[in-house]
Design a protein around this nucleic acid. Structure first.
Lengths: 194, 194, 194, 194
DNA sequence: CATGAATGAGGATTCATTCAT
DNA sequence: TATGAATGAATCCTCATTCAT
């Protein structure tokens, strides 16, 4: 039991180190030895937990994506009305991206890199289903525009990544007002006009 | 003159090779020798044109960003009405992202990587000024919501990157109808409701 | 007793795994973990039976060499006439090399590698004594040429290794006729001409 | 020209280092860095001359095998009578194995290792053709036994490897008398009895 | 006896960069 | 200006071995 516990802690330390180093230096400059060093482990030990660098990065991606979707849907239930449900999910996601920016930044870096393989991406997307279901309900009810989920995502959720990264870069500060404005923009873009 | 011409061609070949290799393999797997090889040049020659790899990548970024903004504003003049002007710029950008996807993909890869330094990013953004001016006009006229330019960008232009990358990944196909829907979503998100 | 039995079985499993892996992949690519895995044992357990890798390999060598000489002399008795005794031993060895090729191949791999130390080699040779005695008898009787045992071995026994390896490599097929021809060649090379 | 010369010298130094290290420590313990060090070159430089370790070892094998066959046939011409021709070739080979033992040992180590691929082996064997032709002539003339070339090789040439390695191991000393005895053994084993 | 987890040392290989020509 | 050859440092990863349990 203690052994298992230690194992889990070591795995977590490795994943945490990967996130931190990739956030600070990018995939390119994140070496296995640096990860090992930060996790206070020998480089060889990494290979007890992960098959290779690809695997480590992809498993980290899946893990973080899991945290993200868990957070997103924590306060949502399928019985909520469409508009209210959307607002709740959207604001949870906004919260996550701003408060758990360590994770959000990592996911942003994963967006366009070949380091993450398609399998892991699919795995990561799977948990977004409740949002897709909500959109389906909305479209059926004539509340949400009958357009592709990719468009809905591009215009409501994806902008948050851009805003978060801009803030991280120090370009501008995202306060509560901005978040509310952003929500209004997101909702305006997909709701069927009155 | 012929010498100068050859110089420029070599520089261009290097930049073209960088774009192609980064698009296909990512920054990680793009080495100076491969770039040199593809540009039919010795590795040492690269250093006659660029200080080092960072510099090559950043200069490439600026160059591509220039092509992007040139294209965006080619048919726009400052005298156009706000809504019309916005539509024209937006559709040019959409066009660019879909037709010049070689360049668009490269820019997307640059979005969240520490490989591109802040100076180059600023340099690349500079040329967006006409769009910012248009937005200022729109806000003054009560046509566009009085919110941060970052928000306006996040909800109108940035989604196109996401859509383009999704299409590249084969996730879905972006046809003319989608583009029109996307434009409506973009405009809905930032226009002041009637 | 049962415990001792299990111990012996484990040792045997380790030796068997070593033989198989070295035969298939060479010394170079045969790691302690692979041996442990194939013997269904923990890597650490190997070190309860053998001091280190060198020791494991050398002990394996001695063990296999033992099987080889046991087989060689099983049907031979010192009272046999020289020529008959030689034929019997030679054909047993030929048999061994062709039928127990798992062991023969392993020995062949050991032939010219520094992995096997001189001590183990001496140990392995010791059991050839009956053959040396036979040769001594043959020399005394003027039946076998009065030349060094090394020469006798080189021209009668050693060629079998070459033939066996050639067959393993698929270069040619060793049938009963070939074996008889080989025997005649061997005997011709060392017998005193009539 | 000077540059080409230096290149050739470097390649030769690498091959020489490979031979020496493999002879002393075996393939297993011969690392690229040790080879580089002994050739007074950076490890990276090896990869300018050889694709990888396999390639280096195989090219070395082919090179050495070439020296071997060149030496073997230097004084032989196809017009010589069978018996005389055979003696000349055999003694040249014996000479080579004893005097150029650096090369002979390396070839012996190559005999049974998976490090040498089948292609290189075939390449190395190609140059033995004159010997095979001689044997064909001998068989036609009823001077040499009508048996497989593999058998002829196993009983005339291959024993020399064993003797050379035994000598290297200090087991016994091969003097001129031994060589003559060995030759007689070889010839006895394959000649058609009077 | 037996082990799974752990690791330091070392493996092959690649890379950004330099330098003599 | 242009280069091919060269390299030290760093890469990912494996291995023989040990140790707490």
């Amino acid at each position: 039991m203690a052994a298992l516990q230690k194992s889990i802690e070591k795995r977590n330390a490795l994943i945490a180190a990967t996130i931190e180093l990739v956030n600070n230096n990018g995939f390119h400059a994140t070496s296995m030895s640096k990860i090992a060093h930060m996790a206070q482990v020998s480089p060889a030990t990494i290979y007890l937990y992960f098959a290779n660098k690809q695997d480590l990065v992809n498993k980290t991606y899946i893990e973080v994506k899991g945290k993200y979707t868990d957070y997103a849907f924590e306060t949502y239930t399928e019985k909520m009305p469409v508009a209210a449900g959307f607002e709740i999910i959207w604001k949870r996601i906004a919260d996550f991206k701003l408060k758990e920016c360590k994770y959000a930044m990592f996911l942003a870096q994963c967006d366009n890199t070949p380091m993450i393989d398609e399998t892991s991406r699919q795995e990561g997307i799977k948990h977004l289903q409740p949002l897709l279901d909500l959109w389906a309900r909305g479209k059926d009810a004539g509340i949400i525009k009958p357009i592709s989920d990719y468009l809905l995502y591009a215009y409501t959720i994806n902008p948050l990544s851009f805003l978060m990264m801009s803030e991280k870069r120090g370009a501008f500060k995202l306060d509560a007002t901005h978040v509310e404005e952003a929500y209004q923009a997101a909702w305006s873009s997909i709701k069927v006009p009155a």
